[in-house]
Design a protein around this nucleic acid. Structure first.
Lengths: 124, 124
DNA sequence: ACAACTGTACTATGTGTATAATACAGTTAA
DNA sequence: TTAACTGTATTATACACATAGTACAGTTGT
């Protein structure tokens, strides 16, 4: 069963997208694998204190991307392979690293300053 | 006059917040200084192809944070000092670096992998 | 003085997100 | 079989964001 224990919602970003991202990061980390069972919409809704329709929106998006499989009445399961996982890794890293680099560049930091900041914050 | 030539809107994040962030990063980089003149709401609206009300929302937020001063009928100007600038620097760096570190950690990367990625992306 | 700009305010509309409340049909296990 | 779960769908409400259009009063330079 996929865990959402460490899921923390941040405001400003749509909740259903945060759920998407949480699962994708778990896939990249190897914590979520092909065939893994997802919590039902209602259960996850209660667990996170989020409306069932919002969970459904996230799961629907995952289904549209071919990352989960759902059948009416039954549980939903992860549908992964090497290609999908690698595409997610590239998508997430490209997005995250690209945005931080452009941010720090815009603020006038040097590459050394940037690396130093990352290393300092890694411990906390 | 503050420049918006390199401003590129990204979807998913409210435009007025992106304008806020663009100006704050310019302040941190030293490209925007105390007393600098801002483009008028209407001019910036035309320049960026964004509704005047959206520009006004961004400028209003800057005014509420004490970073600009506006008088009805006259131009708006940056209102900065050392303390404000340093607070912005801390606010932006804390936010950006904190989010990238938690992202990469969630994806299972080591500190060395993270630094290596940042360095590789810095050139492009 | 006056024309052209400025900031500011207001109403209205459309879209996306999140919520609440129901409803129905398919599955699974006792 | 049947009770309890499952996914899926629908309607309604509320809020934030972005747009469009209009209006009015303050300033600035000629």
């Amino acid at each position: 069963m996929i865990s959402f224990e460490d899921f923390i919602s941040v405001d400003g970003i749509p909740i259903y997208l945060q759920i998407l991202r949480h699962i994708k990061r778990g896939v990249v980390a190897g914590a979520i694998q092909n065939g893994d069972e997802l919590p039902s919409r209602r259960v996850l809704s209660a667990l996170l204190g989020i409306n069932p329709n919002t969970i459904q929106k996230a799961y629907k998006a995952l289904e549209d991307e071919g990352l989960i499989e759902s059948r009416a009445g039954a549980k939903s399961y992860m549908s992964l392979d090497v290609d999908k996982t690698e595409k997610i890794r590239i998508q997430l890293l490209e997005n995250d690293v690209g945005s931080i680099v452009s941010s720090l560049k815009q603020m006038g930091l040097s590459k050394e300053d940037a690396v130093s900041l990352i290393e300092k914050h890694w411990e906390n």
